[in-house]
C-alpha cells in the first residue's frame, strides 16, 4: 500500500501550540511529592505490593499469587520430576496431541510424552494448533509480585501458541523468578540484547471474563487451564 498523506504536521503543530501554556502539577500540590520524607529517591515501583528480596521468598509469593489466580503452580525438585508431572497431566486430561516449540528446558520432557507433537519452530497451520489438547512452552521469567509469566515471541514459540490451545503448560526453572515487572523488562533486555522481541505478553492466570453478571468464568477466549511446572534444577 502506498504511503497516504496524513495529518502528522498539523497535529504536532496543534500540540506544540497547546503546550505553550504550562499546566499546574496539581497531583503534587495537594498530596506532596512521591518521595519518602527522608528525601531518598525511590522508583515508583516502591509503592506497589512489597516483594521479598530473596529468591525463596519470591517463589513462595509466586505460589501464593498463583493460588489466588487459579494458576496450577507445581514446584519440582529436578527435571526428572518435571517429566513425571507432565506425564501425569497428559494422562489425567487424556491428551492425544500437543503443540510445542523446541527449548532447552522442555524438549526432552515433551518428547518423552510419547504423543504426536506439532512443533511451531519452522511454521505451522492454525488448525493444527487450535485442535491440540495442550500447548507446552518456555518463558522469559516469572514475576513474583503479580504472579505473571512473561512470554515473548522468542521464548514461547511465537505469538499464538501460548493462547490458542485450551490448556497452556509452562516449563520454567527456579532461576527465572524475578521480583516485579521492571525486573522482568530487565530480564528481557538481558536475554535478548538491544533489540527486544516485537511481542511480549505477561500472562497472569488462565483466560477469564466477568462480563456476565460479574461472575468469574475461566477460558473466555484463551486457555481454560494454566499450569506452571517450576524446576529447582537449572
Amino acid at each position: 500500500m502506498q504511503t497516504v498523506p496524513d495529518s502528522r504536521d498539523r497535529i504536532l503543530a496543534r500540540i506544540r501550540e497547546a503546550l505553550q501554556a504550562p499546566a499546574p502539577r496539581r497531583h503534587l500540590q495537594t498530596h506532596g511529592p512521591a518521595a519518602p520524607a527522608d528525601g531518598s529517591a525511590k522508583s515508583p515501583e516502591a509503592w506497589l505490593p512489597p516483594v521479598p528480596a530473596d529468591r525463596e521468598g519470591r517463589v513462595a509469593l509466586f505460589a501464593k499469587n498463583s493460588a489466588d489466580l487459579k494458576t496450577e503452580f507445581v514446584r519440582c525438585a529436578n527435571h526428572a520430576e518435571v517429566r513425571a508431572r507432565l506425564d501425569a497431566l497428559a494422562a489425567g486430561a487424556g491428551w492425544r496431541r500437543v503443540a510445542a516449540h523446541r527449548f532447552a528446558a522442555g524438549e526432552d520432557a515433551i518428547n518423552s510424552l510419547g504423543l504426536p507433537v506439532t512443533w511451531t519452530d519452522s511454521g505451522y497451520t492454525v488448525p493444527d494448533i487450535e485442535s491440540a489438547d495442550a500447548a507446552i512452552t518456555g518463558c522469559d521469567c516469572l514475576v513474583a509480585q503479580t504472579g505473571s509469566v512473561l512470554v515473548t515471541s522468542r521464548s514461547a514459540g511465537g505469538r499464538v501458541l501460548s493462547v490458542l490451545p485450551p490448556h497452556h503448560v509452562i516449563l520454567a526453572t527456579r532461576d527465572q523468578i524475578v521480583g516485579d515487572i521492571s525486573d522482568a523488562y530487565a530480564a528481557v533486555r538481558r536475554n535478548h540484547g538491544g533489540e527486544a522481541p516485537a511481542f511480549l505478553s505477561f500472562i497472569t492466570g488462565p483466560s477469564r471474563t466477568g462480563d456476565i453478571e460479574r461472575i468469574l468464568v475461566l477460558g473466555a477466549h484463551g486457555p481454560k487451564r494454566l499450569t506452571i511446572l517450576l524446576s529447582d534444577e537449572s
Binding site: 511451531t120 519452522s122 505473571s148 515471541s153 516485537a198
Partner: peptide
C-alpha cells in the same frame, strides 16, 4: 490476565504474527 506489548508486525526470524 494478559498484558501484551507489540512492537511491530511479524519480524524477520519470527514464525507468526
Amino acid at each position: 490476565a494478559y498484558n501484551t506489548m507489540l512492537g511491530g508486525p511479524r519480524q524477520p526470524g519470527e514464525i507468526d504474527g
